[in-house]
Computed example of a mutant assay.
Amino acid sequence: MSNKTLGLSPQLHDYLTSVSVREPELLTQLREETAKLPMSRMQIAPEQGQFMALLVQLMGAKKALEIGVFTGYSSLAVALALPEDGKLVACDVDKEYTAIARRYWEQAGVAGKIDLHLAPALDTLDRLLEDGQAETFDFAFIDADKRNYANYYEKSLQLVRRGGLIAIDNVLWNGRVADPDETDKRTQAIRDFNQKLYGDDRVMLSLVPIADGVTLALKR
Rank of each mutant, 00 (worst) to 15 (best):
K113W: 12
F51M: 14
Y198F: 09
R102A: 15
P209F: 10
Q188V: 15
F70E: 02
R127Q: 15
K196N: 08
L122R: 06
K95E: 15
Y198D: 13
M59V: 02
V208F: 12
N151W: 00
V160F: 10
A134M: 01
T98K: 12
S18A: 13
I114F: 04
D94F: 05
T71V: 11
Q48I: 01
R176V: 01
G109Y: 05
A217W: 02
R41G: 02
A111N: 09
E106F: 01
L197V: 14
L8I: 07
Q158D: 05
D181W: 03
E84F: 00
I100M: 11
D126L: 08
E106P: 00
H117D: 02
H13T: 04
M42I: 12
Y152C: 03
D145R: 14
Y104E: 02
A53M: 08
L88I: 15
A167G: 13
L65G: 07
A140D: 03
Q11T: 11
A77D: 10
L54H: 12
K219T: 13
D192V: 04
R176L: 14
M204L: 14
Q195P: 00
D92V: 10
L76P: 06
L216W: 08
R186S: 12
Y104Q: 04
V93M: 14
A111G: 08
E135L: 01
Y15R: 14
G175Q: 06
L37H: 13
R162E: 15
K146C: 03
Q57D: 03
Q29R: 15
L207W: 01
L129F: 01
R161W: 03
R41F: 12
V171A: 02
K4H: 12
A101R: 14
L159N: 02
F193C: 08
Q48G: 03
D201M: 11
K95P: 15
L165A: 09
I114M: 03
P83S: 05
A167W: 05
T34D: 05
L159K: 00
A144N: 11
A111Q: 13
R161I: 04
R22Y: 11
A64L: 03
L216I: 06
S74K: 00
W173M: 09
L12C: 02
I100K: 10
P46H: 01
Y198V: 04
L88F: 09
I100Y: 06
P209H: 11
D92N: 11
G7S: 06
K62C: 09
P83E: 06
N151F: 07
Q57V: 10
L76W: 05
Q29S: 10
G199R: 10
A77R: 06
A101T: 13
L118W: 09
D94Q: 04
L8C: 05
L218C: 10
V56H: 05
G7V: 10
I100F: 03
I67A: 07
Q133I: 00
K219I: 10
A79Y: 05
V160L: 06
